[in-house]
Every structure is written in structure tokens, then in C-alpha cells.
Design a protein around this nucleic acid. Structure first.
Lengths: 325, 325
DNA sequence: ATAATTTCTGTAAACGTTTCCGAGAATAGA
DNA sequence: TCTATTCTCGGAAACGTTTACAGAAATTAT
């Protein structure tokens, strides 16, 4: 329509400098007068790039993930990338299915949060072929391409705080499904307890294997009903802690009067009036943002440096669910 | 490698019935022994389909949206589609930017939640060219392709409940940014009040224009400090109500003892122990799921029937943030 | 046995871009 | 004026699939 070749139109649209300003103007004008929209699929095919990344999370409904997702999407957007949202629902088969699909779509990178041990091998396999970064895994020596909170420090901080308040019987509760971050929280918890000559107690819920509200509610109920209940409960995350809170409420136990409760994550719920859960804060948005940064560094390095790590520091945020004994 | 043509490989991979079972087996085996992965971009180019849809929401951090997103993603997945997650942050420019990008990507449909009046024209323009369905808009006569909760009924239900509890001075609070759903909630609220010969009072927050926690907190504070405070507050959504709850807490007002508060949405926060917010529940997951269903119906009809509506019924869920006067 | 089907497979065009290469036009240098 | 550069632009191949069409092989019918 403009009397020029496809090549010239392409150059005009992509801001190439080897096209005359006048013809560019003309091309651009015609383009939006006819409502032309370039086909990203065709472009991707020839440039061998999709400008897309995949985000695999267990469940966007868990309030920890939306903030991570926001960080991922925000940073991706700033770089001209879009993100495919995938809920794995903790199921390895679903993860695998999404994995295949995303690879077919030629996403240029993959961010996966909270990968369960069961799916670990799968991801490590693909990691060699494309940039994949984990969120929330432990940055241990053998662990690569992850951005995580220092969970052992987080666990330590929580336990130490309770100990300093004078608590002696503190029990850690959560689901049985292990993840690296869970293992680390436990390690920190045990470390603090043992350093102070205390006996670390851990109760993982068999009925509710994931770290969700029900796990905490259920587990706290059995603790409360024991002959000699603990004075403090540490939840593997805030949802678990909230569940414990619920159980206390149900049994008429005042928090923190009769029971101290501490969580992990600092999800928005935690700061709600009347809840005021003391917890260990993670920089959730940053986890997402940094993961994207890492993805691109990985990509630029051509997967040469395929073992990056970034550790964020947790922070104790004191509200009012714990009291001095 | 299998000694067959591209065409045959394509047929083998796509489950066509015009390929010999033996050769299909052989092709499939070779494919996964060499780790072959079909290129979705190329496929999309020739089949003129992307198998993707776009989801534009204000902010995934607002707990209402993750559940909607889950419904969208779940239903899309069931149909073999993936979803691009886009946070508009309520900014029309961002929405427009995403719109262009998604169209370039040739998404086969668009779901947009809570579109502000300012961006309405933009969307209506594109609606003629591709399936777009709104979530949360008012299914009024002039409104098309939306799945929404009957907000006027919701507003009515909330007000009616408070009135029946004996409240006379009830004020509706929220942000000033109007949306169709907000308008409808107000309409229902006014209707109920007037039917009972009561004066509807509405206070929209100029400082915090969106329906978020701060809007409610801020507005409730001024109400509390008035010479003659209301006995009940109705929040435009749960976040606003929670903000009001926070303000009451700060001023030592007991809820529901000194102040009754009702919300809208029934986000997970609302059911938390100690919060127990009475509210109007929306079927959030269904909103998302049905939106996808509608998208496909629209697509199949070739945009012939371009004015579909689906109205979901709200439900009053009584917890303990309101008391009888 | 031949003819008529049916089943299977290959050829080649098409999808809508980008980009290498080369060529003509305009400009600068001599 | 002529040559050497610099600007612009077009031609054509390439990206990796799908699919209409046609042809070959195998099967069935006569």
C-alpha cells in the first residue's frame, strides 16, 4: 500500500536506522490507518525468540504467590516480556505437562516456585537446555539457579525470639511434604533450640501434607489437647500459623495470653487488625523480580554460568501473637 | 531420521488417522529419543491459532483476583489453552499497551476484570474484532459479553441485613473511582434504604480512589470522629471493610459491639479467626471459569452473537462483624 | 487375472515476518 | 566531471510447521 517492500515495512516498524524518515512516517501512518498489527508468532519464528517466560507456581490462591507473581510480571514487562501463568497444584504430572507445553511455546526461560522433591529431577533435566530458576529453594552448594530467603536463618530468628521471651516448650508444626525451604526452616529452628539447651519438637501433619491452613488447624488441635501443651507454636508458614490461631480461638485459648504463635512469610493476612501475627518476613516481590533478573543473566551467559544463587535476608517482624513468659 | 517426510511426522504427532500405526510408533519413538519438541510458534503461524488467551486484571495482589485467575487458568488449561497474566495496575495506558501486545501475539480471546470507565471505549473498540469478555461489569442492557455478580442484589442484601438488625444510620464507603459494579452496589444499597424509609449515606474517599484497605481505613477514621457516627458501615468490598475494621481497632471501638461492618466479595481473609467478617459472597472461581466458557462460545459463533451475559447470584454470608441493635 | 478401492505417504505451497546481500540513488571528495 | 561513500531500498531465502493434492502401494472386488 505504501509502495515499498516488506523489508522496508519491517525496518520502519522496528526502528531500524536504514530507512528514510519520510518513508517511515508514511509506512507508520498507513499501518495504523488500516489497523495493521504485526504477527508476533511469525516474528518469533524467524527471530527464534518468543519474548515470553513461564511461571509455574503451586497455587495462585496461596497469598504468598501473588506477590511473587507481581514481581515476576513487573520485571518481565519492563523487559518487554510476557508471562504464562501456570498453577501446578503441587502435582508433578501437571508440572511436567506444563513444562512440555512451555517448551513447545519456546519460552525463553522458566521460573518455578516451590518445586517439590518429587519433581526435582524433571526440572534439573531441562535446566541444562534452557534457563530455569527456582524460587524458594535452598541455596546449598548443590543447588543452582535459585533465589531464596535464607530459611535457616529465618527459622533460627523465629525460635530465638520465642526463647528470649522465655518459652521452653516450642513446637514446630507443618505439613509432611518436604521442600528444601521447609528443611531449612527446621534446621534453623533446631539450631536455635539446641544452642539454648532446649529440646526441639517437630510435628508434621500426615493428614494435611501441604503447608496450608488446615494443616495448622489440625495439628494445633492435637497439641492443645495433649496433657502438657507447649507454650508456643511455630508454623512452617503463615497459613499454618493462622490455622493454629483458629484452633486456639475454637478452644478458647487467648493468643498470645495462653499460647504464642509465630509464622513465616509475612503474607498480607498477617498484618490484619486483630490478627497481628508475629512472623518472619520474606521479600516476596523481590524474589520474583530477582528471579527474572537471574533468568536474563543466565540467558545472556548462554547457560555458561549455570549455577547462580541469590540469598535474601529474612526479617523478624514483631506484632502481637507472642508474649513474654 | 525415520525415513519419512515432514508431512508424515506431522501426522504422526497430531494423531491423524491417515498414518500407519507402525510408522507412527517409529516416528514417536525417534522423536522422544532425540528430544524433539514441536515449535508452537510455527504451528500457530500456519494454523492461525495461538492457543492462548490474555487475562488482564488490576492487581493480582488483591485477593479477589487470584481466585478468578485460578478459574480462568483452570478452564483454559482444560481446553488446551494457556493464559498470559497481565496486571494493569488500574492504569489505562498499561491496559492499552497490554492490549496491543496481546493482539500481536494473536491471543484468541481476552478476559478483562474490573475495567475502569476510562478504558471502556478502548475495549469496546477491540471487542468487534476479537472475543473479549468482561468480568464484574454490570449486565445492563447496553453491556455485552460479561459475567458478573448481580451487584445491585448484593448491595441490597447487605443493606437489608443491617436494617433488619435494627440499624438506621448506615453509611457506604469506598473509593471514588467508579466502576459499573460499584455503581450497582450503590444502587442496591440505596434501594434497600429507601424501601425502608431510611436515608442512604455514601462517602467516597478522594484520597484513596481505589477500593483498597487504605480507602476504608481512612474513610472510617473520619466517620468515627464525627459528632454522630453511624452504627454500621458497609464497605464497597472486603478490603475496604477490613480497613474500616482496622480503624475501629485503633480507636478502641469493638466490632460488632460498637460498630457493625459488612463487606463484599468474601475473600479468604474474611473467614479468618478473629476477623469473621460478615459479607456478600461472590463465586470468584466461577466468574473466571464461566468467562472462559463464554469466550469460546463467542469464538465458535464467529462473534455473531456478540452480546452474551451471565449473571451470578451473590450470597449473604453471616459471620460476626454485625450485631443486632 | 484385472479393475476398483482404500490406505498410506510424499511434494510443495503457504503462514507472516526478518535479514543478508546486492544494487541504485544520492551525496561527498578529488 | 569522475570516483568513492553513504543512504535507501528491494529480492529472496529462511524460520518450522500444516495441509491440499496427487501418486504409490496395498487391499478388495469382480
Amino acid at each position: 500500500m505504501a509502495g515499498v517492500s516488506y523489508a522496508t515495512v519491517s525496518r520502519a516498524l522496528n526502528g531500524s536506522d536504514e530507512v528514510n524518515e519520510k518513508t517511515r512516517k508514511r509506512v507508520l501512518e498507513i499501518c495504523d490507518s488500516v489497523g495493521y498489527s504485526p504477527n508476533a508468532l511469525a516474528r518469533g519464528l524467524v527471530t527464534n525468540s518468543s519474548n515470553a517466560i513461564g511461571l509455574i507456581i503451586p497455587n495462585i490462591t496461596n497469598p504468598f504467590y501473588p506477590e511473587v507473581a507481581l514481581g515476576v510480571e513487573g520485571e518481565a514487562r519492563a523487559r518487554g516480556y510476557n508471562v504464562f501463568l501456570c498453577n501446578s497444584n503441587f502435582e508433578p504430572e501437571r508440572m511436567e505437562s506444563y513444562f512440555r507445553i512451555l517448551i513447545e511455546r519456546r519460552v525463553e526461560g522458566l521460573i518455578v516456585a516451590s518445586v517439590p522433591d518429587a519433581a526435582r529431577g524433571l526440572f534439573d533435566f531441562y535446566r541444562k537446555k534452557m534457563p530455569v530458576v527456582y524460587i524458594g529453594s535452598r541455596p546449598a552448594d548443590e543447588e543452582c539457579n535459585c533465589v531464596a530467603t535464607d530459611s535457616v536463618k529465618g527459622g533460627y530468628l523465629a525460635a530465638e525470639y520465642l526463647i528470649k521471651l522465655g518459652h521452653r516448650r516450642i513446637v514446630f508444626i507443618g505439613g509432611t511434604r518436604t521442600s528444601n525451604s521447609q528443611i531449612d526452616k527446621l534446621r534453623g529452628f533446631r539450631l536455635a533450640m539446641e544452642e539454648h539447651g532446649l529440646q526441639p519438637e517437630v510435628r508434621l501433619n500426615i493428614n494435611y501434607q501441604f503447608n496450608k491452613r488446615e494443616s495448622g488447624y489440625d495439628m494445633a488441635k492435637v497439641l492443645i489437647n495433649e496433657k502438657n501443651p507447649p507454650t508456643a507454636i511455630m508454623g512452617s508458614n503463615d497459613m499454618v500459623a493462622l490455622g493454629a490461631l483458629e484452633a486456639c480461638e475454637e478452644y478458647g485459648l487467648d493468643v498470645p495470653g495462653d499460647m504464642s504463635i509465630i509464622g513465616f512469610d509475612d503474607i498480607p493476612y498477617a498484618s490484619l487488625p486483630k490478627i497481628q501475627l508475629t512472623t518472619i518476613a520474606q521479600a516476596k516481590y523481590d524474589l520474583g523480580k530477582i528471579a527474572v533478573d537471574m533468568l536474563f543473566k543466565l540467558k545472556e551467559s548462554g547457560l555458561k554460568n549455570n549455577c547462580m544463587k541469590e540469598v535474601l535476608q529474612p526479617e523478624l517482624v514483631i506484632r502481637s501473637s507472642c508474649r513474654e513468659l
